[in-house]
């Protein structure tokens, strides 16, 4: 997701003692031998929907805001991470990690999986599109028409995703800068999915429908050493416009906040630092941590002044690399729904 370009790499700094993060991000913080994102790169689809093994880290990240027939809100997450342990792109040097979650009125449930690269246990192919780990699947004919399945011991979902809009290239032609120092990633999204399907819980099967948002991102560079975490949102407004925004927090208290505005006409515009402000306004205690679950977001150019609040504040991902991720409700000048991700708390 998003900022997360740097998600895993950043987590190395955030939880230096965290075994997995170190193992996953591999050897040191240099990018020796790995390809670097370039502003001159132009995406070629569907090839770029597949894996870029020459880069260190990459992911396929789907979040969806769903409702059952009675109008109860649900959220789901489906994420596949690829990490190269060595450069040069060999399949055997790839390590895979995946997270899946559902946020429901009866609580947040999640699961995670790991796989080694050359085992056949996980992988991605661009055409026909398929990303999988174990029985979890994101399978197309193509990335605009996919079936999404995942499960844990206490949930299962099987969803159909159909896009009714174009892929959105983030940053400048998909080159997304992450800090003043120039760290960057390749980043594009598909925010226009219509979703329908079922969520199965041990106690019941729920028919759901709603909207989903896919993020594709790959890079080789970690965050800067002083960046301590991030707050990221993807929002669907009732008007049809959408907003992606994130805020990279620095140890000195400052933050680097950028994003992308997607108009009702499905055209996008990269926001520059300073265009967007994100301010935490209410906090919840989750798993013994204080997490800002309500944010005030302002984007003066669009006369946007909204309050984004977690629908289920308990949406903590207690995975090996842990963070908060869950559906949000948007109130204010531009009402709507969306997803919020926060790490480093």
């Amino acid at each position: 997701m998003n900022v997360s370009v740097f998600r895993l790499a950043a987590l190395i700094f955030l939880c230096a003692s965290n075994a997995l993060a170190q193992g996953f991000a591999g050897l040191g913080q240099t990018t020796d031998g790995f390809a670097l994102p370039s502003p001159d790169t132009r995406f070629a689809f569907p090839a770029d929907h597949g894996a870029h093994n020459e880069f260190r880290i990459e992911w396929w990240y789907v979040t969806a805001n769903l409702e059952d027939e009675a109008g109860n809100p649900y959220g789901i997450q489906w994420t596949l991470f690829r990490n190269a342990l060595e450069p040069h792109g060999a399949e055997s040097d790839q390590a895979w990690m995946a997270h899946a979650a559902v946020s429901t009125p009866n609580g947040h449930r999640f699961a995670e999986r790991f796989a080694r690269g050359d085992s056949g246990q996980a992988g991605v192919s661009a055409e026909p599109f398929e990303a999988f780990i174990d029985e979890w699947q994101m399978i197309g004919p193509n990335l605009n028409d996919i079936r999404l399945t995942a499960q844990g011991s206490d949930f299962h979902y099987d969803l159909k995703l159909d896009a009714d809009g174009p892929f959105i290239l983030q940053g400048e032609q998909g080159f997304s800068v992450k800090s003043e120092a120039g760290q960057a990633s390749h980043y594009y999204s598909q925010p226009f999915y219509q979703v329908s399907g079922t969520i199965t819980l041990p106690e019941r099967v729920v028919e759901v429908s709603g909207r989903a948002w896919l993020d594709r991102e790959w890079s080789s560079q970690p965050l800067t050493e002083t960046q301590t975490g991030w707050d990221w949102v993807s929002l669907h407004f009732e008007s049809g416009a959408k907003l992606m925004g994130y805020r990279l927090r620095d140890a000195d208290g400052s933050a680097y906040t950028v994003g992308t505005w997607i108009g009702e006409d499905q055209t996008s515009r990269a926001l520059q630092p300073g265009d967007l402000t994100m301010t935490a306004s209410a906090w919840s205690t989750v798993e013994g941590r204080e997490v800002p679950t309500t944010w005030d977001i302002a984007f003066p150019e669009q006369e946007l002044q909204i309050s984004v609040s977690a629908i289920y504040p308990d949406s903590w991902m207690g995975t090996l690399v842990s963070y908060w991720e869950g559906p949000v409700r948007v109130n204010g000048s531009h009402p709507g729904i969306g997803y919020l991700e926060m790490s480093g708390y």
């Binding site: 075994a19 170190q22 591999g26 060595e86």
Partner: peptide, 11 residues
């Protein structure tokens, strides 16, 4: 032989 030692046990 958890993920933290992947670096020197794999390959």
């Amino acid at each position: 032989i958890g993920p933290d030692s992947i670096g020197d046990t794999m390959g």
